[in-house]
C-alpha cells in the first residue's frame, strides 16, 4: 500500500468531494448533503470493494480531467452515461480501470445524466466537517469544491486489477421521467385545480438547477392565499411552491426550512433518478399513499442491497476470468478486456 496523487487538469463547476452525507444535523440548519445520486455513488464504491459511503469525487456536467501524477491506483466511475477517455481508450461510463503514473482520465457528459462519481481504491484525503467530507456547496464546508490545478492525495492506494471492467448498471430503478410522490404536507393550501394540474401535467426541469434544488417549468400551481406559512422543516424531495406558483424540487444541499407550501414530496427511492435528468428534460409526478411509499422503500432497499452485493464481487484475474468464461460458455470471451 502506498500513496497516490491525482492532479486535476480541469474541473467544471459543481465538482466536489462527497461521502454518503452527514445526517442528523437538520435541527442546526445543516442538510445531509452527500451525493445527488446516492445509488450511483454507492455503486462506484461497491465495484471497487470499498466501504459504503467512502469519499468520491462528484462530477457535474462541467466534466473533469484528472491525471495520476504519482503512484498507481484503480478507480471506478458510475452514474448517468458519461463519456470516459482513459489514455485514449474510450468507454461509456460505469467502468473500473487502473490509472498508471502519468495516465489521464477525462470524464465528460454523454448520452444522459447530470452526475457521475469517481471512487478510488484508497482513501481520499479531504477536509471533514461534522465528521464528513460531504461538501455543502453554499458554504463550502466539508471536503469542498474541486478546482482546476488541485492535487488530491490518496493514501493506501491500491491497484485492484481483479475488479477492472464494466460495472453492471442497476436494472430495478424507475424510469427517469417519473417520480412518485406523497401529496402534501400543505396540499390543502392549493387551489383544487392546482392539485389536479400537478398530478396530470408534464413538468420540465429549468436551468435553475444546482445541488440545492431545481425549479420546474409547468402549469402555475395556484395557492389559495398568498400568505406564507410559518417557516417549517423541509426535506430533500420537497416540492415547494413559491408565491408565483412555480415549484422547486429541493435536493441534496436544500435549505432546512421554508415558509412556502409544499404541494408534495418525492419518495427517496425515486430521487436519485430524478437528479440525473437535465435541464429541459420532462418529469411527471404520480401520487401514491404513504403506505405504498413505505412498501416501495422497503422493496427498493432490498433490490439495492442485492445489486450492490452483486457488483462488489471481484471478477478475478484475467486468467481466472478467461477460464471461467471458457468453462461456462465453451468459447473464449474477452469482451471486457478487448474493449480496454
Amino acid at each position: 500500500m502506498t500513496d497516490a496523487t491525482l492532479r486535476i487538469g480541469f474541473a467544471g463547476p459543481h465538482v466536489s468531494f462527497q461521502d454518503a452525507g452527514r445526517r442528523g444535523h437538520k435541527r442546526f440548519g445543516v442538510p445531509a448533503s452527500g451525493p445527488m445520486d446516492r445509488l450511483s455513488h454507492a455503486a462506484a464504491n461497491a465495484a471497487l470493494g470499498n466501504a459504503v459511503g467512502t469519499t468520491c469525487l462528484e462530477i457535474s456536467m462541467g466534466g473533469l480531467m484528472v491525471e495520476c501524477s504519482a503512484g498507481a491506483l484503480s478507480i471506478a466511475v458510475a452514474g448517468g452515461k458519461f463519456a470516459l477517455d482513459h489514455a485514449g481508450a474510450k468507454f461509456s461510463g460505469w467502468r473500473v480501470l487502473t490509472l498508471q503514473p502519468g495516465d489521464r482520465l477525462t470524464i465528460r457528459p454523454g448520452a444522459w445524466g447530470s452526475w457521475a462519481y469517481l471512487a478510488v481504491a484508497g482513501d481520499i484525503v479531504a477536509p471533514r466537517w461534522l465528521g464528513h467530507t460531504a461538501t455543502h456547496s453554499i458554504s463550502g464546508f466539508g471536503g469542498g469544491a474541486i478546482t482546476t490545478g488541485q492535487q488530491i492525495r490518496v493514501t493506501n492506494a491500491e491497484r485492484r486489477e481483479d475488479r477492472e471492467g464494466d460495472i453492471a448498471q442497476p436494472g430495478f430503478v424507475p424510469p427517469r421521467g417519473q417520480a412518485r410522490v406523497v401529496m402534501g404536507p400543505q396540499d390543502q393550501h392549493f387551489q383544487p385545480q392546482a392539485v389536479q394540474d400537478f398530478q396530470t401535467s408534464r413538468f420540465q426541469l429549468s436551468d435553475a438547477y444546482d445541488r440545492m434544488g431545481v425549479r420546474l417549468n409547468g402549469p402555475r400551481l395556484g395557492l389559495k392565499d398568498v400568505l406564507s406559512i410559518p417557516s417549517e422543516p423541509i426535506l430533500r424531495g420537497s416540492l415547494q411552491v413559491a408565491g408565483d406558483g412555480v415549484a422547486t424540487a429541493l435536493l441534496a444541499d436544500h435549505q432546512t426550512s421554508g415558509g412556502y407550501p409544499k404541494i408534495a414530496t418525492v419518495i427517496a427511492p425515486d430521487l436519485d433518478q430524478m437528479t440525473q435528468l437535465r435541464a429541459r428534460d420532462d418529469i411527471r409526478f404520480e401520487a401514491i399513499t404513504p403506505d405504498q411509499a413505505v412498501t416501495i422503500a422497503r422493496q427498493y432497499a432490498q433490490q439495492r442491497a442485492t445489486y450492490l452485493h452483486s457488483i462488489a464481487i471481484p471478477r478475478g484475474s484475467l486468467l481466472q476470468r478467461l477460464m471461467r468464461e471458457n468453462l461456462v460458455s465453451g468459447v473464449i470471451s474477452v469482451d471486457d478486456t478487448a474493449q480496454g
Binding site: 442528523g24 444535523h25 437538520k26 435541527r27 410559518p230 417549517e232 422543516p233 426550512s257
Partner: peptide, 18 residues
C-alpha cells in the same frame, strides 16, 4: 427515528422506513 427537526409550530420526524 433518524432525526427530529423542531420549528416554530411543528416538528419533523425523519425515520428509517425499514
Amino acid at each position: 427515528v433518524i432525526e427530529v427537526v423542531p420549528a416554530f409550530v411543528n416538528l419533523l420526524i425523519d425515520f428509517d422506513p425499514l
